[in-house]
Amino acid sequence: MSWEGSGALVWDAERLRIATDAAGIALWSWNVDSDEIALDERAHQLWGVSRKGTVTFEELSQQIHPADLERVREAFQDTRGQTGAYEIDFRILQGKAVRWISARGQGGDVGIVGRVMFGVFLDVTQRKQAEEAREMAAGEMSHRVKNLFSIASALTAIAARSAGTTTEMAHDLTQRLTSLGRAHDLVRPAPGQVEERAAPLGDMLAVLLAPYSTDDASNARIQMSVPEVWVGGTAATTLALVVHELATNSVKYGALSRAGGILDVRCTEHHDDVAVVWTERGGPPVTAPEGKEGYGSKLIARSMSGQLGGSITFDWPASGMVATLRMSRARLAA
Score class of each variant (00 low, 15 high):
Ala97Gly: 01
Gly24Trp: 10
Leu155Tyr: 14
Gly164Glu: 14
Val110Glu: 14
Gly202Thr: 02
Asp172Tyr: 10
Met321Trp: 00
Arg115Asp: 12
Val207Trp: 11
Ala235Gly: 06
Val116Arg: 15
Val120Asn: 13
Asp273Pro: 00
Ala138Gln: 04
Glu245Lys: 09
Gly233Trp: 03
Gly95Cys: 07
Ala318Val: 05
Pro285Ala: 07
Gly282Phe: 00
Ile101Tyr: 11
Ala255Thr: 10
Glu132Leu: 02
Asp185Val: 01
Asp12Pro: 12
Gln307Thr: 08
Ala199Cys: 01
Ala190Ser: 08
Leu122Asp: 03
Ala170Gln: 15
Pro200Ile: 00
Ala190Gln: 08
Ser50Ile: 05
Trp30Phe: 09
Ala334Arg: 09
Gln82Asn: 06
Ala217Ser: 13
Thr234Ile: 14
Ile158Cys: 08
Ser61Val: 04
Ala190Thr: 02
Arg161Cys: 10
Arg329Ala: 13
Ala8Asn: 14
Gly261Phe: 01
Val110Ala: 13
Glu131Val: 01
Leu180Pro: 04
His171Gly: 04
Ser303Ala: 15
Ile101Leu: 15
Ala170Asp: 14
Arg144Tyr: 09
Ser218Met: 05
Ser29Met: 12
Ala206Ser: 09
Ala67Glu: 08
Ser150Met: 04
Pro211Tyr: 12
Gly95Phe: 06
Leu9Cys: 07
Pro211Ile: 02
Pro284His: 00
Ala199Val: 04
Ala255Trp: 15
Ser311Lys: 05
Gln62Asn: 15
Val116Tyr: 08
Lys146His: 15
Asp315Pro: 00
Ala103His: 13
Met169Gln: 15
Ser102His: 04
Val277Tyr: 14
Trp30Ser: 06
Ala288Asn: 02
Phe121Met: 04
Asp123His: 02
Leu9His: 01
Val72Ser: 04
Glu74His: 12
Glu135Trp: 15
Ala137Cys: 01
Ile64Phe: 09
Gln82Pro: 00
Asp68Val: 04
Glu41Phe: 09
Glu195Asp: 12
Lys146Trp: 10
Pro285Cys: 02
Val226Lys: 04
Ala198Lys: 13
Thr156Ile: 02
Gly291Val: 08
Val242Gly: 05
Ser213Glu: 12
Ala13Tyr: 08
Val231Ser: 01
Ala235Ile: 07
Ala13Val: 09
Met321Ile: 04
Ala206Cys: 00
Thr54Leu: 10
Gly254Cys: 09
Cys267Asp: 08
Pro317Met: 03
Arg71Lys: 12
Leu241Cys: 03
Arg51Asp: 13
Gln45Met: 03
Asp272Asn: 10
Trp47Phe: 10
Phe90Gln: 10
Gly24Ala: 01
Pro211Leu: 06
Ile262Phe: 02
Val194Thr: 12
Gly24Lys: 01
Thr238Val: 11
His271Thr: 01
Gly24Ser: 06
Val276Ile: 13
Asp109Ile: 02
Ala137Phe: 03
Met304Pro: 07
Val276Tyr: 13
Pro189Ile: 03
Leu332Ala: 04
Ala190Lys: 12
Gly261Gln: 06
Val110Ser: 10
Asn219Pro: 00
Ser29Gly: 02
Gly48Asn: 05
Glu14His: 12
Asn31Gly: 00
Gly181Ser: 14
Asn147Asp: 11
Asp216Ile: 00
Thr165Lys: 05
Ala247Gln: 15
Ala8Val: 08
Ser179Glu: 07
Met304Gly: 04
Glu58Gly: 02
Ala333Glu: 13
Ser297Val: 05
Met117His: 06
Gly139Phe: 00
